[in-house]
Each structure stands twice: as structure tokens, then as C-alpha cells.
Amino acid sequence: MLRKLLPKLNLNLNPKPKSDPGASQVVSQDSSVNTPNLLDSYEPDFMHNYNFLYKAVNSLKLFIIFVPALFFISLFLNDLTDLRISVAKKNIDRLNTEITKYDKVGREANLVIKKTELYKQVKASYPDISKRVEWLMTQVPTDTVLEEIRYDKDDGSVEVKAVTSKALNITLLIDRYFKDDSISEVILESTEFDSRTQSYSSTIEVVYE
């Protein structure tokens, strides 16, 4: 090794200043300084480059290993994903097979659900009318006759036409109707006196809550 170093020795009487690091110059020994050890004054030029190149080559080695490693990892992930997809598809097939066994149950359940929902809707939209009508028709005072009783779902209220010879009976009828807690309003729409029959004819609207 020393044989190779010796030809590269450059004995320079005027050494360059140390503040010039870019120069790949051989620092020569000062002629006024004589040292028996050649290596003290020798600084081979390629040592400075060698470190850089060594690092560069090592980095390239890492790169050369790293990229294929990434590739093989991605291959592995691909295979893993394929496996997961095939497992999920098998599960789907199994579930579909099981669900087809529930065909009859599903149909019956669906029908029951539809009927139940319809039942609920009807019960919510159409209240029990029988007790209400019975109340209206049975609270009539004596000397009072119900001429007509009419109901239309769109209005939601019941219209009663009563005829009586005494006006007080009309108020009595209204008062009795109010005893039903489900009634929110009783509206006396009109009252007419028929002088021929000497009777009062009233139209009353009963509004439920």
C-alpha cells in the first residue's frame, strides 16, 4: 500500500492555506519542517472523496435492496387482500344459502309486518266512533228530538240537528255533551224558531279532541 502512496506524494514548498477545503490538493510539507514520518504530512486526495463515495455507494446499496423489498411487500399485500376477498365471498355464499332457507319465514313476516303497520295507521286515523255516537244520541233531554246526526271523517266533527219546543233544552243538550271528556268544542251553528210548529231547530257541531 505504501508503494502506491509514495508516487502520489507531492512535496510542495509553498503549501496552500487550510481555508481552501475544496481543493483536493496534496498538502505539502513545509521545507522548513522536516519530519522523518512521511505519513504525517501526507493526506491522500482520494481519502476525502472516498468517504463521500463510500456513503454514496452504501446509499445505493440500500436503495437497491429497498425497492425490491417494497415490491415484494406489495405482492404480499396483494395476496393477503385476495385471500380476504375470497373468504368474504365464501361467507356471502354461505349467508345467501342460509337466507334462502328463510324464504317462507320472510314472506310470512313481511305480510304480518305490512298488516300490522296498516292496522296501526287505521287505528290512529279512525277513532272508535260507536261510544261517541251513543253518547250523543242518548243525552237528548225530554221534549227534544234529534232530527239528524251526521259525521264525515274529512271534517272530523259530528253535526247534530235538534228540534225542541223549549230553548232551554238546547243549552241543556250542549251542557250534557260537554260532560264527555273527549269533546273539545261544541259549537251552536244556528238556531231557528219555527212559528208554525212553535219549535226551535238548532244545528250543533261537536268537535272531538
Partner: peptide, 17 residues
């Protein structure tokens, strides 16, 4: 209401007299 069907009354008119 006593029939076996679900019945919803949407209107009626009676002339009791």
C-alpha cells in the same frame, strides 16, 4: 266492530226522528 274484519267508519248519517 263485532265483525271479524277491521272496519273504519268514514261517515254516517242518521235521521232518528
Amino acid at each position: 266492530e263485532s265483525t271479524s274484519r277491521l272496519v273504519a267508519v268514514s261517515g254516517f248519517s242518521f235521521f232518528p226522528a
